[in-house]
Each structure stands twice: as structure tokens, then as C-alpha cells.
Design a protein around this nucleic acid. Structure first.
Lengths: 336, 336
DNA sequence: CTGAAAGCGCTTACAG
DNA sequence: CTGAAAGCGCTTACAG
């Protein structure tokens, strides 16, 4: 392995001079700098990351803690992850992807061993046991997902309350007066998936305000149950003219359910989902939707985290992204 | 930060004794060991990873190089990644997820800086420019995806040739004599996606052997083009009774194409796909398929890589997983 | 503008 | 069974 000592020797200077040439932290004469640069290139020298971390207490690595539940929609996670890793690299950081089931233990282990300069947590729950560990950790943290108590941490999430209200507003303004909301399964709520009830509660409140009927239900998040659930809901509420989906699997299952019942969108039924644009494109979902902005949330979390690591962040921040409807033509006035 | 020196002082022993107690590399008297253990717990000591890496030249981190193409099926990647990260952790390794577009530069940078003990490469192409860099790197590497020249590297992939033959065999044995194969887009092949032609060539060869007609086509991998492509193929080959899919997006788009044409599976058309079981479940794809075994391939790659890192691997290995059809009842005898 | 030296927190021969 | 010391490859005050 080629070390800074090898470079120094070959360039005929001291190790500290090479180090300063690398970091630019003090002036180097042009000749010396050129000599060092050429030696570095010819020897193909790259500083040893471990040694540098030991000397500076900076690893230039962030940890990304992702939790996967067997019953949740794994592919959606990819967009968050890419947002994080891509932005991190742009800012000069590599990303340690941590997927072990015991997030608390992982956080402790990685924090204590000083492998990283900071943490990004995905899939944050209402009462997330990782947060108290994170608050005591020596490194800053940013969350994707709004917990009950965000104190001391940077938080990024879609504004699910505004999303619920917006969906209802949209259908109401088209003339709908009875609509169905399909949420994630009950057990997602029980696990602390606050976005489920945040959207549902806001939708319910807005519906009441506007004087329209909203039937809020949970459905399964995998086949074949989700298909059955959807069919049953349509049957139970034959007068509903609008459908709101806060459940990716339900969105994926809907086309076949509707075609089996010969229901056309938007002629017979207006539909709005809440999922990522990428998801919609991949699975050819023809429904207008509120974009979950996964990659963007991941990017923002990293930016804020890095600002904190580098001491440039003034204060802690809770940033809720306003919902936007991507119009795919799946809503219209209700059938006469 | 609490260091090994703090532990030593509190336990009244030398730093080396604490280190040996940690590693178990030499005998420690029971009393001393107990004392050290209790101090470690009370001080919540974890060795500094950078310092340890510097001293041992072992980071206990592996790099996972994943390439994402805008036109490819990103969600499918998740299963490979989880297979890698989960198995790595079981074996005592953390995973650096590297997604930057220039894989060659990333590999060089990470290898030279000694951040990791080894590499797993995903999405390996027929002529993959990362491979020559990897062969010269100081760390071992394992590939998911069979390149043209696998020398010096461990390779894990689905046996796509056997897959092509198996799919054709299966339909032939049910009585089909004219079938369509839908592959990934042409540009995936051009990028070096050898699995596309490996499956197609083997399917073609087997079809010829058996004396049945095989229409092999590429189709788009996103909507709405893929839907149009499928509809056109069915139109062009009205006598085909079987459909083979080596294109996830086509599989996802097929249900609505078929329902628009009132074609029933398997009564009117037999269908076999090639994708992960997870993908099938999430998107309620009702077609029998050859499982792409993503997580398993990721796991095997890590196991072999770690064996090499730890000097336990005898030789380099090319492991092609035999295809298995998951029967979802989408194939039957052709219509009379 | 440059160099010699201390120090980061570990591990591991060497010595007893 | 245990300790004192060297060394891993960097960075950065300190000194000139």
C-alpha cells in the first residue's frame, strides 16, 4: 500500500507538506505543489480513510437506517434510499446502509464505534425507540417521517394532513358528495405509522366541514386480500363516486378490480392515490396522485444532516412538504 | 469519548489486557475478565472502528456497488440489496451502499482509501469496465450477474440459459406449438445486459429442437409503450397460445392488456414470467414465473466474499442458480 | 513556505 | 497470565 510517507519521500518533502498540499490548509509553493501532485498521480495515492478518520474524528460517512417490514411495501423504499445516497455522495459522503431489524442496537453500535458522522432514519414511527438513543448519540440525526416528538432532530416528511384535506377538496370541487378512503392496514397504524391516521383524520375533518360523506377504511396491503377488500368496499358503498388511496398495494390492485366490475375511470369513479411518481410509471397506474416525494425527502434530510455535521446549521428544523396532485386524468365530475 | 485507556484505568489493568479480553486472543484470568467486562458495560465502551481498522487493516465493511439506470426497473434492485445487507450483518459486516453513476471511479476511490474489505457488484454487464479495476484492487470481489469474462472473481447469477429452455419445455409439454417471448428493450442488451440474449438464445434453440415456433421480441420497459407493444404482439401472432416474459414491466402491464382484449389466462393464453416472487406478490401478478432469486443471489455473493476476505475460500467460483417455476396456475393446454 | 514531532485509539509482537 | 512499547497512516499545533 502506498502511504503519505511514500509520497513525501518520492517528492523530497516532509509528510506534513504532503498533507497540507492535500488539504490546502496552508500555502505551498507552486513548484513543491506540482511535484507532489505528479507523485500522487504516478503512485496512485489515496489517503487511508481509517487513518484520516482517527486523526480528524471525521469519517465522511453517514449511516442510513432503514427498517423493512415483511408486510410493507419494500420497493417504495428504493426511492428514499437513492435520494439519500446520491445527495450524500454529491456532498462528499458515503452511505452505510443499515437494515438490521433491531434498529436501536444498530444505532448504538454504529454510534459508539464512531463509524459515521451522522444518521438518517427512514420509516420513523410515532413513538420510535430509536429516537432517544439518537438524541444521546454523539452524532446528529435527520429523520424521514414525522414522529410524535421531534425535539432535537431534523425532520422531513410529506404533509399528510394537508394531503388528506387536498384530496377531499379536489373531489368536492368536482361535485363529489360521497367518497371512500382506503388506508394502509390497521397493523401499520399500530406499529406507529402515524401518516396513516394523519391523512385519514384530516380527510375526515375536511369532509365534515364540507358536508360530504367519507367512508374511511383500512385494507390489506397484499394480494389477494387487498383485491377482495377493494371489491367489498365498492359493493358496500355503491353510491360513492370517488376513491382515495393511501395504500400502494391497493393502487396496484385497483385496475383489475375495476375492470372485473366494468367500472371506468373517471366516468364511473374518480380516483386519487398517494404514491411516488416512479411507482406510478413503473406500474402503469393511471390514477392522479399526490407524489410522496420520496427521493426529495431523502435528499433534504441529507442536506440538513451534512449542514449540522459541518456546523453550518443554525437550528433544528421540521419540514413538511406541501402535497401536489399529479394529474393523470382520473378525476372528473361524478356520473349524473 | 470513552477509549480502551479509560477502561484499562478503571479496571486497573493495562490497555493490552483489555484488548485481549475483547478479542479473546490470549487467556485472561477469570477475575480480571469479569472486572473488565463489568467496566466495559458500565462505561458503555465500544472500540473505535477507525482505530481498529488502522491497526488491523480490516474494516469489517463491504461495499455494495449498485448501478441504476433511469430506464430500468429500480424496485427489483431492493431485493438484491436486502439479501446483501442482511447476510453481511449476520456475518459481522456492515455495508456501504454505493450508487454513484461512475462505478469505475467509485471502485477506485473506495478501494484505494481502504474503506472496505471487499466488494459486491450488482447489475454486472457483459463487458463491465468495473471488472478490470476490481481485479487489480487490493480487496476481493463478488459479482451478481455473469460477465463475459469472470476470471479472478466470484460470480452468482440465475442460470438464464436453463431458464429459457425450461420455459419453452414447460409450454411444449402442455401442447403449445407457437409461443411469443417478450424480452427487455434492445437498449438493455446494448448496455451489456447479457441475461436478455442468454435467455432468448436458449429459448430459441430449444424451440427449434422441439420443432415449435417461437416469436422473440423486445418490448419497452415502461408505460404506456409497453402496453402498446404487448397489444401489437398479440395482434401480430394471433395463433400463439403461450407467452414468455423476460421483462418485469411487461408482466406488470399484461393484466390490463389482456382484460382489454378479453383474453383469459390460462384458458386462452398460457403465461410464464421471470421475476421475483416478491414482485409477483406485491403487484398481484397471477402468472407462474421463474423466480429471479434476487435475495438469495445477494446472500450467496456475500457469503463467498466474506469467505475470501477471511481466507477461507479455496478457489474462485461461478455459481448459476437453476431455474424453478413457481406455479400460479397460469399455464394449461392450449385452446382446442 | 516547510519540517520534526506528538497524537488520534487501537492491536500485537516482545518480554517477563 | 500480564504489561510496556512500537506501530498502523494520517493531521496539526509548534517551531523556524
Amino acid at each position: 500500500m502506498v502511504t503519505i510517507g511514500d509520497v513525501a519521500k518520492a517528492a523530497g518533502v516532509s509528510r506534513s507538506t504532503v498533507s497540507y498540499a492535500l488539504s490546502g490548509k496552508r500555502p505551498i509553493s507552486p513548484e513543491v505543489r506540482d511535484k507532489i501532485d505528479s507523485v500522487i498521480r504516478s503512485l496512485n495515492f489515496t489517503p487511508n480513510a481509517g487513518a484520516r478518520a482517527l486523526a480528524t474524528s471525521q469519517t465522511h460517512v453517514i449511516a442510513l437506517l432503514a427498517q423493512f417490514y415483511a408486510d410493507e411495501f419494500a420497493p417504495a423504499m428504493m426511492q428514499y434510499i437513492l435520494g439519500v445516497t446520491d445527495r450524500a455522495r454529491d456532498l462528499g459522503y458515503d452511505t452505510l446502509l443499515v437494515t438490521e431489524p433491531d434498529g436501536v442496537a444498530a444505532l448504538r453500535r454504529i454510534s459508539n464505534s464512531r463509524m459515521v458522522d451522522g444518521f438518517v432514519l427512514l420509516n420513523v414511527a410515532e413513538h420510535d425507540s430509536r429516537l432517544e438513543v439518537l438524541r444521546k448519540a454523539g452524532q446528529p440525526g435527520a429523520l424521514v417521517g414525522l414522529p410524535g416528538d421531534p425535539r432535537g432532530l431534523d425532520v422531513f416528511d410529506l404533509d399528510f394532513e394537508a394531503t388528506g384535506a387536498l384530496m377531499v377538496d379536489h373531489l368536492h370541487s368536482l361535485g363529489h358528495r360521497e367518497i371512500i378512503l382506503v388506508s394502509q392496514p390497521q397493523h401499520v397504524v399500530e406499529r406507529g405509522g402515524a401518516y396513516v391516521w394523519r391523512l385519514a383524520d384530516a380527510a375526515r375533518a375536511r369532509a365534515e366541514e364540507l358536508g360530504i360523506r367519507l367512508h374511511a377504511h383500512h385494507s390489506a396491503s397484499s394480494q389477494p386480500e387487498v383485491g377482495t377488500d377493494l371489491a367489498r368496499l365498492l359493493e358496500t358503498h355503491p353510491d360513492a363516486t370517488g376513491l382515495l388511496l393511501n395504500n400502494e398495494a391497493a393502487a396496484a390492485a385497483l385496475p383489475s378490480v375495476l375492470s372485473a366490475r366494468s367500472l371506468r375511470v373517471p366516468e364511473d369513479l374518480s380516483v386519487i392515490g398517494r404514491y411516488s411518481d416512479d411507482f406510478a410509471r413503473t406500474f402503469s397506474l393511471p390514477y392522479s396522485s399526490v407524489d410522496s416525494a420520496a427521493a426529495e425527502l431523502g435528499r433534504r434530510a441529507v442536506e440538513q444532516l451534512v449542514a449540522h455535521i459541518q456546523g453550518e446549521a443554525d437550528a433544528r428544523v421540521v419540514e413538511l412538504t406541501p402535497p401536489k396532485i399529479l394529474d393523470r386524468g382520473s378525476t372528473a365530475a361524478p356520473p349524473a
